[in-house]
Every structure is written in C-alpha cells, then in structure tokens.
Design a protein around this nucleic acid. Sequence first.
DNA 1: CGTATCGTCAACCATTTGGTTGAATAACGC
DNA 2: GCGTTATTCAACCAAATGGTTGACGATACG
Lengths: 114, 114
Amino acid sequence: MESMSDALDSVFSALADPTRRAILSMLLEDDMAVTDVADPFDMSLAAISKHLVILTKAGLISQEKRGRVKWCKLQPDAMRSASVWMQGFGQFEPVNLDAFERFLKEELQETVDP
Amino acid sequence: MESMSDALDSVFSALADPTRRAILSMLLEDDMAVTDVADPFDMSLAAISKHLVILTKAGLISQEKRGRVKWCKLQPDAMRSASVWMQGFGQFEPVNLDAFERFLKEELQETVDP
DNA sequence: CGTATCGTCAACCATTTGGTTGAATAACGC
DNA sequence: GCGTTATTCAACCAAATGGTTGACGATACG
C-alpha cells in the first residue's frame, strides 16, 4: 500500500520535469496516442514512453490500449493531494484562467521549441 | 534570468523530497535555526544543510544569519506559481484546514519517525 | 586566551534519472 | 503472408541526487 508521503513524492517528482509538464498540458486539450505525444519533442519515442510510465505511476495520466494504439488520458485528480498540501502554506490568489492559458502557452513554447 | 519553467522545475523538485517537505511543515510553526531543523532527523547536519540550500534556491525559504546562528524562514509565496499551474488542471475542493492539519501531522510522523 | 558551538565546504560514494540505441512484440493494411 | 506502424524492452551511458565523513572559518562563552 502506498503512504500519503509516497504519493506526494511521486506526484511532485513527476511534475518536476519540464517535458512531463508539457505532456500534461498537451493532454489538457485532448486524449492522445503515444506517438502523437512524442511528436513535438526532440527526443526518442522510447524516452517519451518512459516519461509516460512515470506519469502513469504517479496517477497523473491513464493509458488504455485500443488496437495497436495506446491512448493517454489526463487524470487531474491525482494532483489534488499535492494541491491541498501546497494550499496549506497559504491562500493563493483565485485562479485567473486567462492568465493561466497564456502561462501554459509560454511554457509549452519554452519546452518543445527551445 | 530565470524562466518560468525553471522556477517550476526548482519548486516541484524541491517539494519532491519528503525530508524537505517535512522541513517546510516544521517552519510553518515558526522560524528555526539550522541545528534545530536538523534535530528530529536521523541524518547528518551537513545533509540537512544541503536540503536547506535547495529550498533556498527554490525560494521556498530564506536564511538570515544573526551571530553564529542562521535562521530559516518559510517563504510560501514561492509556491504560488506551482499552485496556479496545478489549479489549471482542475478546480480542487476548497481546503479543509482541519483535515490539512491531520495530514501534516501524519506526514511528519512518517518522515522523521519511521 | 582557549574551547565549544554553528554551519559550510570538499571529497567521496551509491543510487537514481533521463537520455540513447537496437531488437522485440503486436496489430494493421494490402 | 508481408511489410509497415505503434510501442515497449534491454543494455548501456553521463549526469544529477542524496547521503557520508573530516576539516575548516566564524562566533560565542568562561
């Protein structure tokens, strides 16, 4: 069984990598096949496959195989415990979604198009 | 200059270690000297000192030297960007502070008293 | 002054991480 | 059936991480 602390470990360390954060941002749009996830990155498919395993183990995505294609789906609920943990350190401003979209776009640029 | 993505990298990877999360929880109570931070952990002072450097570089704490004692102070604002990033993936329930205190206590137990 | 305390530094070590390649497995399309 | 596409596996590698120890520089105390 996984302790609470282990869950925070795996979620925070999954989120600590810019490639993995970029993948999560992409999946915010829609579910994607592994190959399509890998496409914008300057990195082997095998490397992306490993990142997806890490995201899956952290519970941040799920993967379902249909035919020869494996679909990746965002599971944002896995962020809840981490989010709650952080919220305990302060009340952060209510989310400005417009600002957030600009933020995501910029981060995506930085990551896949350096 | 530090990009947004670098800031998220350093904050999330700082938070990915249970020892460092426990330190932050301790500092929620009050500012502390390095030696006192190190006290509950079964680990050398030098190791804790390194963790504190990582937390400082991430902006999550500040350190001020008065006399021969270096005081550590929580800087929860550094979590804001990371929190906002995560919030973008879903509206997580409003924080239940009682539950959060139980949560922290349990995590602290697991970490310093295994 | 001498000594004890606070904290960091430097060197070292084992393990983990993030990437690579090439081969292997599995499902499609002709 | 056969080539092609989708994905993972295995072996390997360099660099980063998290820890140790012992020496060291500063500050405080008696």
